[in-house]
Design a protein around this nucleic acid. Structure first.
Lengths: 258, 258
DNA sequence: CGCCAGGTTGAAAATTGTCAACACGTGTGG
DNA sequence: CCACACGTGTTGACAATTTTCAACCTGGCG
């Protein structure tokens, strides 16, 4: 088994924790710890909040509703920080759990403060991670709020592909994916049943093949068209100089187009 | 008209920018500027990103979809920072606009960096604002993802009430609200028409009366029951000694309870 | 006055959820 | 070894929610 390939790659491409140097990692984070699949990650053990750096495996953050349903807020892949946002919110019922067996390093609230204060760079790195997180969450919000089920699923998978690519965990035409249909459904605000139908449809049209363990994307281009996918919201690892759109000086959209 | 009452109150209760001292505000933020109702706030003028501190009035952030629809990401009320999250994301098509006439102070990306680096406290304040923002966005996500239209509307209004209360802009049984139905609909992922019907229903049941200019909440308690509202995700202004809720020590709901 | 955005309502259509059932693979205990 | 439970994936039929289309009313404003 490769022990930390994924994370090393991540360190180079630099999205979340990548901006933290090795020393910071060793000094402020707990030692790597193996967590079984399908187990809770404690973000708040009554004593204090904590976050996790995910080195290997998949995890997710979620919220429970009174009726027993849950909404998955986001999936974490190697290199992601889990729960940094909630770290500084006193009361927050955010929860997290692993999907697969995983390797994590813990970051307590106290350590976070120390790390944050230790240098401007460290502070910026943490801020950057939080900012990145928010960007993903916002796009997720748009996904759920204003897209049809088919668009949602497509968009979601393209986004996942993009993120995985950045850490070297995807091929050009797909990626290994341990998510079950119920998990994806809870993330996208759909029933597992309805998701299943949407997946069948996409499979039939040969746009996206989701089978247990892997996702195959025969034609990303066509899929992106279908759902209006635009990867811009994900930070490019470095800089590319921005192409700007900027129409619509007016408040609302649509009307008075001509 | 009171000129800065709202913001002063906010400064005391302290949610977003409140953690910044007066001097930081003067040194790093632009001078107060009046913006007309229904006008764009430029988060990115090709030259660089910028954020805004909202002193008076209402505004919102949103994203445009290819089909011309939009998803409102969140509403900003006096004291809120607009666009801090996007400040550090190179390509991000987040946009913002005012609802009412508003007073803002600009914060350029450069000033942000300077301010952030100026002291640990300032850095923490900005991080806190971002963290708070993310919390609100996450709750918004849950709202849209796993609640019925009626629940969404109720939950949204209770949340708004809570936020406004913290800055002294709400009464116990309601608040002044300049939002139009189309705006609320775009925030909640509903059609304006369907929202209208939901509002009628809530009005009939005397749970929530939304009329242009104001929202009346005759029975917050009953409304909260209806939608499973729990204000915990909003940071208590200062510290109240946490009445932490913390049930659910267990993993996911149901399985392996023992 | 006429325009326009917002609010309101009805009726029909589309999307999505619920209920019920069955197939499959895995792991456990008899 | 087999029976059985369990989570996942799958499908059909039906019900509920939400959208679409099409009006009409209202008040502000040039």
């Amino acid at each position: 088994m490769p022990s930390s390939t994924a994370f090393d790659t991540k360190t180079e491409s630099g999205v979340s924790a990548a901006l933290l140097d090795h020393e910071s990692l060793c000094r402020h984070f707990g030692r790597p710890r193996v967590i079984e699949a399908r187990t809770e990650l404690d973000l708040d053990d009554g004593d204090g909040k904590r976050a996790y750096l995910l080195l290997e495996g998949w995890a997710y953050t979620y919220k429970l509703l009174v009726d027993g349903n849950r909404q998955i807020v986001g999936f974490a892949i190697p290199g992601d920080l889990i729960g940094i946002g909630a770290l500084r919110r006193r009361t927050d019922d955010l929860m997290a759990a692993t999907v697969t067996k995983a390797v994590v390093r813990e970051l307590t609230a106290a350590s976070f403060d120390v790390l944050f204060s230790s240098s401007v760079e460290a502070g910026m790195a943490l801020l950057g991670a939080l900012s990145h997180d928010e960007g993903v969450t916002v796009e997720h919000l748009v996904d759920i709020g204003r897209r049809t089920a088919t668009e949602r699923v497509s968009h979601f998978m393209l986004e996942l592909h993009e993120r995985l690519s950045r850490v070297g965990l995807a091929e050009a035409d797909g990626f290994r994916c341990p998510l079950s249909q119920p998990l994806v459904a809870d993330a996208l605000g759909l029933t597992a049943i309805h998701l299943n139908r949407v997946l069948r449809d996409l499979r039939t049209r040969n746009l996206l093949v989701f089978r247990t363990g892997a996702v195959h994307l025969p034609d990303r281009r066509r899929l992106a068209d279908l759902c209006g996918y635009d990867p811009a919201y994900l930070d490019p690892p470095d800089d590319t100089g921005g192409v700007r759109t900027k129409r619509l000086t007016d408040a609302s959209r649509g009307r008075e187009a001509g």
